[in-house]
Amino acid sequence: MISTPVYSQPVAIPVWLELAAVIAASISGVLTARKRNLDLIGAIALAVVCGLGGGLLRDMTLQVGDVYILKQPLALPISIATAAIIYIVPAIVDKPERLIPILDILSVGIYSATGADKAFVHGFDPFVCVMMGVFTAVGGGMLRDGFMGDVPGIFQRTNFYAIASIGGGATYVALMRLTPISSVAALVACVFVTIALRWLSIRFDIKSPTEDDFARWFHRKK
Rank of each mutant, 00 (worst) to 15 (best):
S3Q: 13
T4C: 04
V6T: 13
P14A: 00
L19P: 12
L19N: 12
A21T: 05
I23P: 11
I23V: 15
I23E: 03
A24D: 04
S26Y: 09
I27C: 11
L31E: 07
R34P: 02
R36Q: 02
L38S: 09
L40Y: 13
L40E: 13
I41P: 06
G42F: 08
A43P: 06
L46G: 05
L52H: 05
G55F: 07
G55R: 12
L57K: 06
D59E: 10
L62F: 11
L62C: 14
L62E: 15
G65R: 12
D66I: 10
Y68W: 15
Q72G: 06
I80E: 02
A84H: 10
A84M: 15
I86R: 00
Y87F: 15
I92P: 09
V93A: 09
K95F: 01
K95E: 06
E97P: 01
L99N: 01
P101I: 03
L103W: 07
D104R: 02
D104K: 06
S107Y: 05
V108W: 01
I110A: 08
Y111P: 05
S112P: 05
A113D: 03
A113P: 07
A116C: 12
A116V: 09
V121A: 15
V121Q: 11
H122R: 08
G123V: 11
F124Q: 10
F124Y: 15
D125A: 03
V130P: 01
M131S: 13
M132G: 13
T136L: 08
G139H: 04
G141R: 01
M142R: 07
R144K: 00
V151D: 05
F155V: 06
F155R: 04
F155Q: 03
R157I: 03
R157V: 01
F160P: 00
F160W: 10
I163S: 10
A164R: 02
S165E: 06
G167F: 08
G168R: 00
T171W: 09
T171I: 11
T171N: 11
Y172S: 13
A174E: 10
L175V: 04
T179Y: 12
S183M: 01
V184D: 14
A185M: 06
A186N: 12
V188P: 05
C190W: 11
V191F: 09
V193M: 07
V193Q: 03
V193H: 06
L197A: 02
R198K: 00
R198G: 08
R198S: 03
L200M: 00
L200K: 00
S201N: 03
I202Y: 07
S208A: 07
P209E: 07
T210M: 02
D212E: 15
D213A: 13
F214H: 00
R216K: 04
W217S: 01
F218Y: 14
F218V: 10
H219R: 15
R220I: 08
K221N: 00
K222D: 14
